[in-house]
Amino acid sequence: MLGKLRFILWGLVLVAAAALAFLLTSPARLPAPRETELPLASIGGPFTLVGADGRTFSSAKLAGKPFAIFFGFTHCPDVCPTTLARLARLRRQLGQGDEAFAIVFVSVDPERDGPAEVGAYAKLFDTPVIGLTGSVAQIKQVKKQYAVFSAKAPQAGGDYSVDHTGSVFLIDRAGKFVATLAPDENDAVALEKLKRIVG
């Protein structure tokens, strides 16, 4: 009788061990890799886009200069102008002039944003902002380099908005990615980060 009970108990232990082993190794437990995730060191790199004058804009024009690059779209009435206005304000607060770092705006909506649209949008801020667009393929490529996500979101009346990465990427003089600026972090933290690319 006692031997039979012991046999049953050992059986239960084996079942529990097998269940645990299954849970630990099951692929469902592993976090799904995100397509846009890149190692931080590889963010950025040379790109070729189209400037507000309709001509090719090569990132070589930014060589030796720190820059803050933001991806948005000109139909965006809230987050994008808020972010660009903030970058303009932070650059003023830094007190080293417009040459301290470049502010670069890249459209993730190349179907609606041509050179004229990004040019007019970039001019709004009373301070130099480089507005860029490109072919669908060029925009796709630069988004990949910066691990930027964007997707069309249909709106009432057949129009669409674009969901997109809201962070600003800070690139230093050597072209190296240093940090991101999040929309909700305070200006003191943002200024410290900017000093790291300007210094």
Binding site: D78, V79, A153, S161, H164, S167, A182, P183, D184
Partner: peptide, 10 residues
């Protein structure tokens, strides 16, 4: 701007 993505909805 949940999870770093800016979204606008009606």
């Amino acid at each position: 701007s949940a999870d770093g993505v800016a979204r606008m909805r009606m």
